[in-house]
């Protein structure tokens, strides 16, 4: 659903993140457009997860600005907000490379926790909830319905009352995405959602992500190594290497960018003349996969 009039939902401007002497991200600027899937790719250690951590408030960037704009025009400066406020007000949700479900709680409870804030308001901060107000009971019922709708979508409805930790790996990944969606986010950040999935599962993931984007008012920011996922669903790709942006554009553009190929294959500067050849080879290989 790539709309003609592209408006940025997320604007990252000149973000630098240093840890002591190490510069993990250096002067990075990019935009993610509304209702698009933007992929952040790059070799290991390129700083992709650090960028995610800056966006979701895990880290405060050393320099720079991260702005998020909602469709209603409200703007949030994420680098100045506490992590829970980013989720609560700016409506950013994320998943993790190593899954972080509440493994001791049931599948359904995991999705209910994600709706905590609106339930707290509806329950009059628990007081009315304990007294059993009808307003709260309705809110609780709506929350369960939303959770169940997501469980249907990720095909986990049969396991709603099982502890989340008992699910197989692929199911946990889908549950984590469902949980993030239950916060009703405007920006969904997925850190390697296809990691550890088999080809059939990652094809299914592609479908799920496409469905999420077209059925909800949400933009997706994706870190992924699986090129079949990246090339298959991204509208826009940003490539990082050593904390710097080396390419930015459509999948087609990025695929044939010599800088990207150099980063992935590690070609020396002196061997520029071979680049053209390598570029062609990689472009074909990646193209086949996609």
């Amino acid at each position: 659903m790539a709309t003609a009039n592209k408006t940025p939902v997320l604007t990252v401007e000149h973000v630098t993140m240093r840890f002591g002497g190490l510069t993990a991200v250096s002067d990075l600027s990019f935009e993610a457009n509304r209702n698009e899937i933007t992929a952040l790719i790059g070799p290991n250690g390129a700083g992709k997860t650090t960028v995610f951590n800056c966006i979701t408030g895990f880290y405060k960037p050393t320099e720079g600005k991260i702005a998020l704009r909602h469709a209603d025009g409200s703007e949030f400066l994420l680098e100045r907000m506490d992590d829970f406020r980013i989720a609560q007000h700016a409506k950013v949700a994320r998943t993790f490379q190593n899954i972080r479900l509440f493994s001791g709680m049931t599948v359904l409870e995991n999705l209910m926790v994600a709706q905590h804030n609106k339930l707290m308001v509806a329950s009059g901060y628990t007081v009315a909830g304990v007294l059993g107000s009808s307003h709260y009971r309705r809110a609780e019922k709506d929350a369960i319905e939303l959770a169940k709708a997501w469980l249907e979508k990720v095909r986990l409805i049969d396991r709603a009352d099982d502890p989340a930790g008992d699910l197989p790996y692929g199911d946990q990944r889908r549950l984590e995405i469902a949980r993030a969606m239950c916060t009703e986010p405007r920006l969904l950040c997925l850190d390697e959602p296809a990691a550890g999935l088999n080809p059939r599962e990652s094809e299914e993931l592609n479908k799920l992500l496409r469905a999420i984007r077209s059925e909800n008012d949400v933009s997706i920011l994706l870190i992924e190594h699986d090129m079949s996922v990246v090339m298959g669903i991204s509208d826009h790709i940003v490539v990082l290497d050593y904390g710097q942006k080396i390419s930015d554009g459509t999948p087609h553009h990025v695929k044939s960018d010599p800088a990207v190929i150099r980063a992935y294959l590690g070609v020396d500067e002196e061997e520029e003349e071979k680049d053209a050849l390598a570029a062609k080879a990689v472009a074909e290989a990646v193209g086949d996969q996609a």
Binding site: G57, A87, R100, V113
Partner: peptide
């Protein structure tokens, strides 16, 4: 279970 994750869900 996981304070960081709880915060990321807006708690």
């Amino acid at each position: 279970q996981d304070q960081k994750m709880a915060a990321l869900l807006g708690i």
